[in-house]
Amino acid sequence: MKLTGIAFSLLLLASSVASAQSLTGPQKNAVRSAELYLSISGFSRVGLIQQLSSSAGDGYSVADATAAVDSLSVDWNTQAARSAAIYLQISGFSCNGLIQQLSSSAGDNYTQSQATYGAQQAGAC
């Protein structure tokens, strides 16, 4: 069976709604926090989970933060491009330097592929 674009979108939406309904109260709250963070800045999946679960951040359990982030439909490449653009507004970076910053565990924790995409989209490469 071949799905049209609209049918496929409706299927994804139904799946998201079902997924969101299966979340616990704390996980639903973590989703709201995650959506707020994503509206403000670019985050990697790992970085967003760390922000939500950090005692200096929101203090959700790692399990609740992970469930919340994984319930969202996020284009991590787009997030990497947003983060890269912000870095380039602040300072100059070489292509490799920006990829390192974006992919480093001391930086943003994007995957190497996401970091490369972000740096390219931001114009550093």
Rank of each mutant, 00 (worst) to 15 (best):
L72T: 05
A63H: 09
S33V: 07
S113F: 02
S54A: 15
L102S: 01
S19A: 14
Q89C: 05
S41I: 06
S71T: 11
S94V: 01
T111E: 02
L52W: 03
Q51V: 07
S83Y: 03
F8V: 02
G107H: 10
T66G: 03
G5Y: 10
S105D: 10
T78P: 01
A56I: 09
I99D: 01
S15T: 13
Q89G: 14
G118S: 07
A14P: 00
S104H: 03
Y110I: 09
V46Y: 09
G47L: 05
G42D: 06
N29S: 14
L48N: 08
A81E: 09
C95E: 10
S94E: 01
A65K: 06
Y60L: 07
S22C: 03
Q50W: 03
Q51I: 04
A7W: 02
Q121R: 15
L72P: 02
F93C: 04
Y37T: 02
G97V: 07
R45D: 05
S39W: 00
S33L: 03
L102T: 00
Q120D: 03
A106R: 11
A80N: 09
A14E: 03
A81N: 01
N109P: 00
Q51T: 15
I86A: 15
A14Y: 04
S103H: 01
A34E: 07
I86M: 10
I86W: 08
S73G: 09
S113E: 12
N29H: 08
G92D: 12
D70E: 15
A34F: 09
Q101P: 00
Q114F: 05
M1Y: 11
Q27M: 07
D58E: 14
S16T: 13
G59V: 11
S105C: 02
A122H: 05
R45K: 15
A65H: 05
T24D: 09
S73K: 14
S91D: 14
F43G: 03
D64L: 04
L52Y: 04
L3K: 15
G5E: 13
G57C: 13
L38Q: 07
T78G: 12
A67V: 06
T24R: 11
A34C: 10
L11M: 12
A30L: 02
Y60E: 02
Q100V: 01
L48D: 07
N109M: 10
A106P: 00
S16M: 14
A119I: 02
K2L: 14
D64R: 04
Q101A: 15
S55G: 09
Y60F: 15
A34G: 12
I49M: 06
S33T: 08
S61V: 10
T4H: 06
D58T: 05
Q51W: 02
A56Q: 15
I6T: 13
V62L: 13
A20E: 05
V69E: 01
S54H: 03
A81M: 05
G123V: 13
R45P: 00
S41N: 14
I40V: 13
G47Y: 00
A81P: 00
G5W: 07
F93V: 07
L98F: 07
G47S: 08
A14T: 11
E35L: 15
Y110S: 03
C125N: 04
K2A: 14
L38M: 14
F93D: 03
T24A: 14
C95D: 09
Q121I: 11
S54I: 04
G42R: 09
L36C: 08
S61A: 12
C125W: 04
T24V: 07
A20I: 07
S55A: 14
V74G: 06
Q100L: 05
